[in-house]
């Protein structure tokens, strides 16, 4: 085989690899979009009790302007948002959840922690 032929085979090979993986990338993106849309549609109407028997937050309460009160937790790489919760309480809550679930804390992802105020506290 000449060097020129080998070069053509090499370029063709790279193209095939890229084509296959780009195809997979597109499939994953479509799969994600379909999954997200299905998840959005299946969001249940506000209920008193959430799945797993955990009482859902009282949605009838006046909406607190969360974005206004949220602040980033220290050391959380800017991802975990705390609403009316001090870092010490947040750390304790995360440890309790990890212990209850029997999952290492570093395998859990907390998006936000918010204090749910009772009616008489407002």
């Amino acid at each position: 085989m000449s060097f020129g032929d080998a070069l053509i085979y090499s370029l063709l090979g790279m193209c095939v690899v890229f084509f296959a993986l780009v195809l997979l990338m597109c499939i994953i993106k479509v799969m994600t979009a379909v999954g997200d849309r299905a998840a959005t549609r299946s969001v249940p109407a506000p209920a008193g009790v959430a799945a797993g028997g955990i009482p859902a937050p009282d949605t009838s309460a006046p909406v607190v302007p969360l974005a206004m009160t949220a602040k980033l937790a220290p050391g959380a790489a800017g991802q975990l948002k705390l609403y009316d919760t001090d870092p010490r309480t947040a750390a304790m809550l995360m440890a309790i959840v990890a212990d209850d679930l029997q999952v290492p804390l570093n395998e859990l992802r907390f998006l936000s922690i918010r204090e749910i105020k009772e009616e008489n506290e407002r």
């Binding site: 085979y9 790279m14 296959a20 993986l21 997979l24 990338m25 993106k29």
Partner: peptide, 20 residues
Amino acid sequence: NPKSLLLGAAAQLGIFAAFL
């Protein structure tokens, strides 16, 4: 992060460089 697939594809350059 499906874009990772592009990096996985680019790293196959070694296969074809060595072949050549």
